[in-house]
């Protein structure tokens, strides 16, 4: 007869750190397991921002989330960008490093340009080959696995021959990267595609992703817009009810995956952000341990 207590499964819960909360995060050790920062905000070689990051990294594990690497760009990622990211990786020894399935580097009037946004990809063999090559180079430079996040897309590029989930799966298989599954982005895309069952379609999306590929989950909210308008993944609201529901589904499918609360605009008080993290922790505890 088994006498030991079954081991409880817990999920690492983190929050995104933005400038307005720098003082709060350093004032008291919060009940969170990691802090995510946007890598490019700390690309300066020195100064106050890097000093704060260094202090935060002494108190919390760090996740470096890039928004500008443009892994799906037809051109290679500039060496200067990779060197800056590598320097940051060496500085904070992050537990996770991630960016998006998007492009941003290109040419404009014959000159190099960075688009400053997460631009949508055509899901086809050519893009698959290019993004896999860019990810492989990045992983080689950083000497670690990268997580690739699904994005909200407001345009549908021509020339797609694969579904988004088939494309992401193929990239993960080809490059060895993991996937960062952003539940809010799935919801926003389903809504903008005119889905009559957003949650059902989002669940189906999750069911097409193999659990072994998933390395992190992002939870966020978005501002509702009127009928006929395109919803934007603005991270300006609390996590929505549909995303909380999807989170439970994702945990049942993917297991105890590190989870992040994202809130980038119209920032709430730090305590509100922490209460969202606490809610995620409670859901994860219930889902995973009921299942166990």
């Amino acid at each position: 007869m088994r006498t030991d207590t079954p081991r409880m499964q817990e999920v690492m819960i983190g929050v995104g750190l933005r400038h307005a909360h720098y003082g709060d995060v350093l004032a008291d050790r919060a009940a969170i397991d990691f802090i995510e920062v946007h890598s490019e905000n700390f690309f300066g070689r020195g100064g106050a921002a890097r000093a704060i990051l260094s202090e935060v990294a002494e108190q919390y594990p760090i996740s470096l989330h890039s928004t500008a690497m443009g892994l799906g760009s037809d051109s290679a990622i500039p060496e200067a960008y990779l060197m800056a990211l590598q320097g940051l990786v060496e500085m904070v020894s992050p537990i996770l490093v991630s960016d998006h399935a998007a492009f941003t580097w290109s040419q404009l009037n014959g000159l190099p340009v960075h688009a400053g946004d997460l631009l949508p990809l055509a899901y086809n063999e050519e893009t698959l080959e290019r993004i896999s090559r860019n990810i492989a180079r990045c992983q080689h430079t950083l000497d670690r696995r990268l997580l690739l996040e699904n994005v909200s897309a407001y345009l549908t590029p021509a020339n797609s021959s694969l579904s988004e989930t088939a494309f992401l799966t193929a990239v993960a298989d080809e490059s060895g990267c993991g996937l960062l599954v952003d539940l809010n982005n799935i919801v926003v895309n389903a809504r903008n595609a005119g889905s009559s069952d957003v949650e059902g379609d989002a669940r189906a999306w999750l069911d097409q992703i193999a659990p072994h590929h998933v390395g992190e989950l992002h939870l966020a909210g978005y501002s509702e817009v009127s009928e006929g308008e395109i919803a934007i993944d603005d991270h300006a609201r609390p996590v929505s009810d549909v995303v909380w529901s999807l989170y439970a589904h994702a945990l049942r499918r993917f297991g105890a995956v590190p989870t992040l609360i994202e809130w980038d605009n119209d920032l709430p008080d730090w305590q509100v952000l922490l209460s969202e993290a606490d809610k995620a922790r409670q859901i994860a505890h219930k889902v995973l341990n009921d299942r166990a």
């Binding site: 760009s73 037809d74 290109s106 040419q107 404009l108 631009l119 055509a122 407001y154 345009l155």
Partner: peptide, 26 residues
């Protein structure tokens, strides 16, 4: 096609105006 399509979208975004071939709202 990948290079030209990406360049076309970026040109349209930086132009700041509607360009045929792209959904104007997006």
């Amino acid at each position: 096609p990948m290079k030209s399509e990406q360049q076309r979208l970026i040109a349209a975004i930086f132009a700041g105006e509607g360009i045929s071939g792209f959904d104007p709202k997006g």
